[in-house]
């Protein structure tokens, strides 16, 4: 407290004078630069190593440019099989999480009840639960009650539990912005509630359905912690990458990394440009 009061006279004049250098700003910018260097440098090194002929991934011991590691990917059966598993799981998760999230959002935004917050807490709880716990509970539940061994199905169930919550939050945000007048008008003009829902509310939610499906897809493909427990003897692309990393480094992982990064950058840049255009 005491050094705060001491700092006031020293800093205040700096701020007041428009012409002088704003050292606070300079420090902050320098810090930002450091931060982003810290974020991006490791990734850049990883990308470089993907094109290095050196069979142990390295960005410094350069042994010539090569695309070999990319060419090897389609021939690797476990990677390809894992990719197929990942896509199956993602499709299953989208098919499960979107209706659940939508139903949860519709009920929570229209139900005036004391149970509302309680239900909300329960439905959102998987987001706040460690991934490995979700995976473990799902694995135990399906084996103990139905004798279903851990595999693709249990992974879908485990992932859907928390991805549905993300979807629900997105739908709730959209529903908050809904102008209820149209729906009321449809109901007043004699439309059945189901008809009004199908022709008014659902079209309004449609863009969010697409966004939520996309987010659910990404979340599912990228998930490691939950999948690691729920997948049992099977594997997905990401768990396969994980187990390869544990048993030694290979530039093929760098090659996959480059593909992931390229997709991420393209999607993120497109998204930003689209948003800017709309504004």
């Amino acid at each position: 407290m005491t050094d705060q009061t001491a700092a006031i006279p020293a800093l205040a004049p700096l701020r007041k004078g428009r012409g002088t250098v704003d050292w606070g700003e300079v420090i902050l910018n320098g810090y930002l630069l450091l931060f982003f260097a810290w974020m991006f440098l490791p990734l850049i090194l990883m990308v470089l190593a993907a094109f290095n002929a050196n069979p142990t991934p390295s960005a410094t011991e350069w042994q010539g440019f090569t695309l070999e590691w990319f060419a090897r990917l389609p021939q690797d059966e476990r990677f390809m099989q894992g990719l197929a598993h990942s896509l199956i799981i993602a499709a299953g998760v989208i098919a499960t999480a979107i209706p659940m999230g939508l139903a949860g959002a519709l009920i929570l935004s229209r139900m005036q009840s004391r149970a509302n917050t309680f239900l909300y807490t329960l439905l959102v709880s998987p987001v706040l639960t460690p991934g490995i716990v979700l995976g473990a509970t799902t694995m135990i539940f399906w084996r103990d009650l139905f004798g279903v061994q851990a595999g693709l199905f249990t992974t879908i169930m485990a992932q859907a539990a928390f991805i549905a919550a993300y979807c629900m939050l997105m739908f709730m945000a959209r529903l908050q912005r809904q102008d209820r007048v149209l729906e009321e008008a449809a109901l007043d003009l004699g439309a059945s509630p189901f008809f009004a829902f199908r022709r008014v509310t659902l079209p309004f939610l449609m863009p969010t359905v697409l966004t939520a499906a996309f987010i659910a897809f990404l979340q599912s493909i990228e998930n490691y912690n939950t999948t690691f427990f729920a997948i049992g003897g099977s594997w997905t692309l990401v768990t396969e990458i994980g187990s390869r990393m544990r048993f030694g480094l290979s530039p093929m992982i760098n090659a996959i990394g480059v593909i992931f990064i390229a997709i991420t950058v393209i999607v993120a840049v497109t998204h930003t440009l689209v948003i800017r255009k709309r504004k």
Partner: peptide
């Protein structure tokens, strides 16, 4: 954008970059 890109890149790959 500079924040979103590393955020969206898979956790495993970012870990892997550091392992290297």
């Amino acid at each position: 954008l500079a924040l979103v890109i590393p955020y969206a890149i898979n956790e495993l790959l970012r870990i892997f970059a550091w392992v290297m």
